[in-house]
Design a protein around this nucleic acid. Structure first.
Ligand SMILES: [Zn+2]
Ligand SMILES: [Zn+2]
Lengths: 330, 330
DNA sequence: CTAGGTCAAGGGTCAA
DNA sequence: TTGACCCTTGACCTA
């Protein structure tokens, strides 16, 4: 029979059994686990009590003749999740396991680079991270400090009744588990593109406040930067105009540009704790603030919304596999 | 020699190899998969470790000279699944390019006409023209990832309304990578159809309007669904505009072109494999959408859901047998 | 004989 | 850690 009596999902390791027992057996074998029963091995193993005693459950697995040999060697991890692939297409790589770092990496997002800047790799060095790693030395934007401050940031008593952009909200959900690289300058600003020039003009006129000061930001310390963030919300006007312009890129153009990307920026994994916290805060923010991008007063939140919106306008993004978009937006 | 050293079951794609490597190579080519080695491409590929690293296994396949070209197109369609039968009743026929035909077109569907210029046959020349060859990466919207991924996407608890804004439209570009056969004039808009008139006269008819006229739906399974629709005006909001507008000129276009009105719309695909994935995806989209179309934030996804929803407004669909509707809905 | 196809039972994932 | 859920593998079959 089965192991626990639960409905079998098929034969597993030689025995018709449920997914639970299948997984349990596999884990036990793979990790070579040894269990000890506290009840002298008399525990009943049924569907409701199977998790009461691992030792007895495992014994039962063996008794019903599950085959250890049928448990294969562990395989390579699955290919990158689509949203990660999506990120890669934007010029970034994602490392799944951030571990092995001395301290948990703060949840960070790569910066809005200056749209005027054309630094190497298309990235704009933002703030130095708190970690010594060369990789996050220059791609941290929304660092831990920002998140902490986020909680403190005020939620407006009254907010304009602006409809939410659903995708923004949804996109924020996914931001919790990884960092979103938002810009890769050369990717979006082909040097010789006429359109590019046009965009540049446009951006100057539309986002001047946002990016005038950007150059100076690059050299600021984290502390300085935070100050700027908290006290100069006007610095971060969402690049809405750019969005609409960028979307007019010809497919070929974008494609070829996409191929030119050189140095992907490593985006490190999550600190799920902080991420979750952040997500909750953000969610609350939405609920209370009824924010559109205009409704956002916290610069960090504003950035996030703006960044997502920006993504929508990037043709390269629009041409991504829908699934990738989907998960990216989710 | 062989790829992994396992006992060869014969020559496959030019190389004596086992069934495992045969299948692996086939799947890799067919689905245009790209693997990435995490060990810098140094993994040993033998019978016990061949599944440790797909990238290295595939490299080995190529190294021992397996021929991509020997991987054929998939063959005759499988026996139709219930939902496929349902689709057929709606006038959609899946046609496939004969095997061995060079340069198969990427899986494409006719696009939302209103968003693009029209071409003969009511088909819209999409991005596929600019896409790389079929076996190059990234032109497959419907690869394993997309398929896999959607299922993993989550539906938020609460969702705001999502107006169709400019940036969303840009996202529609991703839809151009295939064409969706949404409209067939005589079939979907019977000239004397009350619904048809209603929709034509009211381009911006809301979902409520559209479905109020849909009282002909009559089966218990549909009952709940209809209720949801009618009580959730937001469900249909953004896409309906597009759908309605498209329906407005579609009749003339198709008719004037002299295309066969009576013939079902062709859904061209280079492979039923891809088509199948699309169907599955569509199903899933729909399933989610039925719960709450707002659960899907991606504009493209929303459109897909909307397109299915739209079917409900079609008399022909309403007249289908309940069981067929049911399977289609599932 | 080697293409193509199928699907049980391996694998992995990640919210709870 | 569990287990529901999805993807992949490869033995086996037909043409
Ligand atoms: Zn069990
Ligand atoms: Zn082999």
């Amino acid at each position: 029979m089965g192991v626990c009596g639960d409905k079998a999902s098929g034969k597993h390791y030689g025995v018709a059994s449920c997914d639970g027992c299948r997984g349990f057996f596999k884990r036990s074998i793979r990790r070579n686990l040894d269990y000890v029963c506290k009840e002298n091995g008399r525990c009943v193993v049924d569907v409701t009590r199977r998790n009461q005693c691992q030792a007895c459950r495992f014994s039962k697995c063996l008794r019903v003749n599950m085959k250890k040999d049928a448990v294969q060697h562990e395989r390579a991890p699955r290919p990158l999740a689509p949203h990660q692939i999506a990120l890669q297409k934007l010029g970034y790589t994602f490392t799944r396991h951030p571990a092995f770092l001395p301290s948990p990496a703060p949840l960070t997002f790569s910066a809005f680079p200056s749209l005027h800047s054309h630094s190497a790799g298309g990235m704009v060095p933002a703030l130095s991270d708190t970690l010594p790693s060369p990789h996050n030395a220059n791609n941290s934007f929304l660092d831990r400090s920002s998140f902490q401050d986020f909680a403190m940031s005020r939620i407006p008593e009254t907010v304009p009744d602006v409809p939410l952009i659903g995708s923004h909200v949804s996109a924020l959900n996914s931001l919790s588990s990884f960092k979103i690289p938002l810009f890769s300058t050369p990717l979006h600003y082909p040097p010789d593109s006429q359109l590019s020039d046009k965009i540049k003009e446009d951006e100057v006129s539309s986002s001047e406040e946002a990016f005038k000061t950007n150059g100076s930001l690059e050299n600021k310390t984290e502390e300085d930067f935070r100050t700027v963030l908290l006290h100069s919300p006007n610095n971060f006007e969402p690049p809405i105009h750019i969005v609409s312009k960028a979307s007019q890129f010809e497919p070929q153009e974008v494609t070829s540009i996409g191929r030119q990307k050189t140095n992907p920026i490593e985006v490190r994994g999550k600190s799920s704790e902080e991420a979750r916290l952040f997500e909750l805060k953000l969610q609350k923010y939405y609920e209370y603030g009824r924010i559109s991008s205009e409704g956002i007063y916290d610069p960090a939140a504003k950035l996030l919304v703006a960044s997502i919106r920006w993504l929508h306008g990037v043709d390269f993004f629009a041409q991504m596999k829908a699934s990738e978009q989907d998960t990216l937006l989710h």
